[in-house]
Design a protein around this nucleic acid. Structure first.
Length: 614
RNA sequence: GGUCCGGUAGCUCAGUCGGAUUAGAGCAACAGCCUUCUAAGCUGUGGGUCAUGGGUUCGAGUCCCAUCCGGAUCACCA
């Protein structure tokens, strides 16, 4: 049983005994003891002073005495300061807690079973007319981490991606390629497919603006010029042809999208993200109409004289929302209703999470209401995992102004920086091959990037300064990875010693120690530093739960940092392998192994790999 | 204008259910620590009107109200 549960139950019983009142578990507030006081766990007794009719300190004192009597094997001492009862937990207890953690490789995770609810997470959802940028990176990393976190909390997770592969923006790229491309392909140019298409999208925009400028110079007003420019008319004509299934347009469209997908796949692979099911808007965009018609018949929506269909949400405190244009074509909202329908056909969804930027808060508020009206059981409490924008020092990223931080560039820079960093190190790794060095640089560079993004609260806007490279020191991914590598270095030495004389297994996986922990009870007296490390380890379970209920991966990132710092302090102050007392040494090895395991699992939830050496 | 979100050190960010006299990290600056398990580390110094004003209570960065500042959104765009 968890130590906090034991104490909570004991306190409840004691309060009833002393003051004759039953109190809810929630009233028993336990927290970590502040470092300046003795003890590790603190009970806040203020809530009980009303029942005791005594001063806080006195109340704390009498509860403390009873607690010690009741749990002699747990509590080795206590002190009361004001309304705070600081409890010292016996070393034995701590060791037995460590043992539980150490022996359970999935410590902190709730297993997924047949009965687990099914959570679908939509993330990434790119347009196919330009390469991915930093904003997409944030989306992808958050989506992936959230999926991992939900899984760790005992949910079946289906990761999905809805690719926006149709529309006027694609036609712009296609048209530009036809006009100025001279048959350029990824192969002929050596460009990544998504970048190639992106270049033509930019080219279209450049020529288009030129045309608008000329028309304005000839006296047309700007709004009209934007409509009348020959290029945009041509693009629209192409879209119409696409919708009419024109074979030539469709063939070109397929070819160019294939290029983009090949490019995206590389980026996704580098980011370490993947999907269980990909939907394409070209296949789903007509689906929503039927549902809208259904809603119309049931009287949820209404048709205006011009033929357009609307939902009146004024009773919900919102506006009226267009669902079908007067020409009968669908809009964004209609499409999302359509994909919802398809998804529900494909999977028995219990909860739907959309990882989409906070600029679409209103959209999802409306979507939730509409899906609920249309009878989707998960519609009402669908989760819009709404994350903030990535801002640059001079504001938002704007593709037209060329202030976009390209995902592939950023990844390459991070890996190159990591490579440089290890080359500059004083204590370099010897006997390492070029491939190993490159692999370490990849893990560390990506770790730095991912941690940089995931450590901040998802819903807040965050700042990225391209002038200053992402750090590798301090509160960073590499700091945590480094801690892990240090632990692995110790454990390798232990394994070598243990394996001496025996046959060496060549699995490089983290394997359990050959030497078992001393069984509790054992006479070891632990230092404060060791105890607080175990206490930190114990906090992992909470961090995972919190991250799950709050939909907040940054909890995990901050937890991993705390744990790694605590271990580094321990590492600095104590020796593991050179400790002469056999029991102490075994204990510290196990402690290190447990920390390493939790770091690996925690970072794994963030999609961050940890290196054996660095 | 309506709605939603944010404002904590020079900079980037933590701060669980409201908890301790001194609100924490990291970066940047300065000063120390490598013959010892990996110095991508450890230790120390300086740096704050938690946007502002009220309220709630044993106690408020945290909850409530008002105000100021910043952002998003309110399309027959997606």
């Amino acid at each position: 049983m968890k130590i906090e549960t034991k104490i909570t139950e004991a306190v409840k019983a004691i309060v009833e005994e002393l003051y004759g009142q039953q109190v809810p578990a929630k009233m028993v507030q336990l927290q970590e003891t502040r470092p300046e006081f003795e003890g590790q766990v603190t009970l806040v007794v203020f809530p009980f002073t009303k029942m005791s009719h005594k001063a806080p300190e006195q109340t704390a004192q009498e509860i403390g005495e009873r607690l010690k009597e009741r749990l002699p094997e747990v509590i080795s001492g206590f002190n009361a300061v004001k309304g705070f009862l600081n409890l010292s937990i016996s070393s034995q207890q701590w060791i037995s807690i460590l043992q539980d953690i150490y022996e359970n490789p999935n410590y902190g995770f709730t297993p997924v079973t047949e009965e687990s609810p099914l959570v679908m997470i939509e993330y990434s959802s790119p347009n196919t007319n330009k390469p991915l940028h930093l904003g997409h990176v944030r989306n992808n990393l958050l989506g992936w981490a959230l999926a991992k976190v939900m899984e760790a909390n005992g949910n079946k997770v289906v990761k999905t991606n809805i690719v926006n592969d149709r529309g006027i923006h694609i036609c712009k790229s296609m048209l530009a390629w036809l006009k100025w491309g001279n048959g350029e392909t990824p192969e002929s140019s050596g460009k990544k497919g998504d970048h190639l298409i992106g270049d033509y999208y930019v080219a279209f925009d450049k020529h288009y603006r030129e045309e608008v400028k000329q028309l304005v110079a000839q006296g047309m007003d700007e709004e009209q010029a934007k409509q009348e420019a020959p290029l945009i008319k041509e693009a629209h004509a192409m879209l119409v042809k696409w919708e009419q299934n024109d074979p030539e347009v469709r063939a070109l469209w397929r070819k160019m999208n294939e290029w983009v997908y090949a490019g995206f796949d590389e980026t996704y692979k580098a980011l370490g993200v993947s999907f269980d099911k990909i939907y394409y808007e070209s296949e789903t965009y007509l689906e929503g109409k039927e549902k809208v018609e259904e809603g119309l018949q049931k009287g949820f929506f209404y048709r205006r004289p011009d033929g357009s269909v609307w939902a009146d949400l004024t009773s919900e405190g919102l506006d009226e929302k267009l669902l079908l244009r007067s020409d009968g074509t669908s809009v964004y909202m209609t499409q999302d209703i359509g994909t919802a329908k398809l998804r529900f056909q494909d999977y028995p969804i219990d909860k739907m999470i959309y990882v989409v930027g906070n600029e679409q808060n209103y959209h999802f508020q409306v979507l939730s209401i509409l899906l609920d009206k249309l009878g989707f059981k998960w519609g009402k409490d669908l989760v819009h995992f709404s994350y903030g924008m990535v801002e640059l020092p001079n504001g938002k990223m704007k593709s037209r102004e060329g202030t976009v931080v390209d995902a592939d560039d950023l990844i390459a820079t991070m890996v190159a920086d990591a490579r440089q960093m290890s080359a500059d190190k004083v204590n370099k790794l010897e006997d390492i091959t070029e491939e190993e060095a490159q692999e370490i640089a990849r893990i560390v560079g990506m770790g730095a990037l991912k941690y940089f993004i995931l450590k901040v609260d998802a819903r807040k806007n965050m700042l990225f300064n391209p002038e200053e490279s992402i750090d590798f020191n301090g509160n960073t991914g590499p700091f945590i990875q480094y801690t892990y590598a240090r632990i692995r270095s110790i454990l390798r030495k232990v394994e070598e010693q243990g394996a001496r004389g025996k046959e060496q297994e060549d699995s490089s996986e983290t394997k359990p120690l050959s030497c078992p922990l001393p069984l509790a009870p054992c006479p070891l007296a632990l230092s404060e530093r060791e105890i607080s490390l175990i206490q930190k380890l114990q906090g992992f379970e909470n961090a995972v739960k919190q991250a799950g209920t709050d939909y907040n991966p940054s909890c995990i990132a901050n937890y991993c940092y705390d744990l790694a710092s605590e271990y580094n302090r321990f590492y600095h102050d104590f020796s593991v392998l050179r400790e002469e007392d056999e029991q102490k040494r075994t204990f510290r090895i196990a402690l290190s192994a447990a920390v390493g395991q939790v770091i690996k699992n925690g970072m794994g939830l963030l999609g961050i790999e940890v290196p054996e050496r660095m």
